[in-house]
Design a protein around this nucleic acid. Structure first.
Lengths: 309, 309
DNA sequence: CTAGCCTATGATTCAAATTCATATTTTTCA
DNA sequence: TGAAAAATATGAATTTGAATCATAGGCTAG
């Protein structure tokens, strides 16, 4: 009778489809294969006897019934999420603390908006940022001085900690539009050698370019440091050197022609962010939700950011 | 991450649990086994680490988190149903006609309320009742003079028609409280033999007692007929004879002591109602929904009615 | 205490969702 | 336009997990 072929899973898919604009990207976000979503869609479409999306449309358009199901997803999924939170509040202890240890300057760019959203969902959770800019924040977790640590790259699996993938971003080289290197399609380690590299005043292993590109290539350019991103960009714009920053931090400046960006290496330099928690904390819904929310919000609002397996 | 263990299926289960007050009854309603629901519950409960229902409570009480999920089900499921209707309106032709052929007098008791509810959900569907009180309404389906026929008992499977189970009800014998047979716990065919049987003025094979009980026993009591249920009951109450009617039609009269009821046969006489449609009509969502709604509403509002496999 | 009803559970079966491998289509850019 | 890259579709294999079956355990009422 009321054979409910439709499940929440499908609504998640439809929402991801709308958010990402493509089947493959939606699959990434949902931690599924593209094939899985394609099959899911086919099941729904044969069930309804009509397509949900218009095949061969670049920004992915929904048909009328696709729209209607999307609307359903948009109203229903938040209600489900809210119920989940309420249930978690009942089953797990009342409130909780969430102290977040961050390594990198730029992380504030996405952490702050995510925290703002989170606060509306979990008002009772005490949120804190611990920013000593330590090169290794994991000991903070062990010593129970933080519940969550944002770290670069996937560390070796550990018994006591869990690593949750956040997202992947591209670090790009920045230079003034007049800079001689702007003629190149991408920068090699040698290109950096003769330049002044403008960075935050932190250790090398906290700088993506050094750790993953120039370090392995044994290139160590001259340095100049600035505390603030704007200061770095100002130095870059005035030709004092080149910098390397995550693509998302500089989108505006590039659009305005203030500076130009070039890939680091032929393939570009991609970096990965993970959230680390203790195994216990990973069980707590309020922490789990913070990670999921951060991930989702960052993926949809930051440029040049993509999902991570 | 946001591992949605919860699915619409679970919400359906929780709602059925609340509606029926027991796991087994809920299973019947959902066309699942009791075991299936028990397993479902266990999955949810181990996931949340807490029970959803209080074990060993007769009318089945929900825990706090069970309540919360029930609340979710009650808000979400209607939204999903509405979306389903909207999608059906898009994919299948605009409006539709639904002409219902009924065999039995009593069917109006549950058909009318169901039709009222249905009209609010599918206002564009033209609803009609065809009540010639024919003993076999199936030809009406074949001749496309009706879209749905309510019939007694499961007929032999046919290629061109689909039979949808509606529900099971008990037909009970009715007599005045002073009647000598009221001393018996249940009535045998012989008990009927010496009595006057008061019935609607229709053929024998449309009367449950005759068709399924007295007919096979070759008992053919004296008759007296009346058009209206109240008239039959009046005759019964005044000792002019006994009657046999579905339990749900006479609930009030029995409670007030106007008449008393006794099972027909030691096990009671149970009858089955089915909705028949053409195979094509069974595909149409608006017809399918009518059947589902009728079934559900009758099961929850009529006394002495139970689910049918 | 026993019969009857309801629920729980392990084992098995069955269905369905996902992945894998690959084909097909579409897009991009030289 | 052609070739490479990206995105999507699809059949088969695999894996997951949901339902049933068979049965045991509990509770209630007579």
């Amino acid at each position: 009778m009321t054979t409910t072929i439709l499940e929440l899973r499908h609504l998640e898919t439809i929402q991801a489809l709308a958010d990402t604009g493509s089947v493959s990207k939606a699959a990434d976000r949902l931690y599924l294969t593209q094939s899985a979503l394609s099959h899911q869609l086919k099941v729904l479409e044969t069930h309804y006897g009509a397509p949900l999306i218009e095949r061969g449309a670049k920004p992915l358009r929904f048909t009328a019934i696709g729209q209607r199901l999307l609307e359903l997803a948009r109203t229903v999924l938040p209600q489900v999420a809210e119920a989940r939170r309420d249930v978690a509040r009942h089953t797990q202890g009342r409130a909780g603390t969430l102290r977040i240890a961050v390594q990198c300057h730029n992380c504030f760019d996405w952490l702050m908006p995510a925290m703002d959203t989170y606060r509306t969902l979990w008002p009772e959770v005490e949120l804190d940022i611990i920013s000593g800019f330590l090169s290794d924040p994991l000991p903070l977790l062990e010593r129970a001085e933080a519940e969550l640590a944002v770290i670069h790259d996937a560390p070796a699996p550990r018994d006591d900690l869990v690593f949750h993938p956040l997202f992947r971003y591209e670090s790009v080289a920045l230079m003034s539009p007049q800079h001689r290197l702007s003629a190149k399609a991408w920068l090699s380690p040698e290109d950096f050698a003769a330049e002044t590299l403008i960075t935050y005043p932190v250790a090398d292993d906290m700088l993506d370019v050094m750790k993953h590109y120039l370090g392995p290539a044994r290139v160590n350019p001259k340095r100049r440091t600035a505390e603030l991103t704007v200061a770095i960009l100002q130095l870059v714009a005035s030709g004092r050197g080149i910098a390397a920053l995550p693509a998302w931090t500089v989108g505006n400046y590039i659009e305005r022609g203030y500076v130009v960006s070039r890939p680091i290496g032929a393939q570009g330099l991609y970096c990965q962010l993970y959230a680390a928690t203790t195994r216990a904390a990973a069980q707590a819904t309020y922490i789990d939700e913070f990670i999921a929310l951060t991930r989702k919000q960052s993926l949809s609002e930051l440029k040049g950011v993509s999902a991570l397996a």
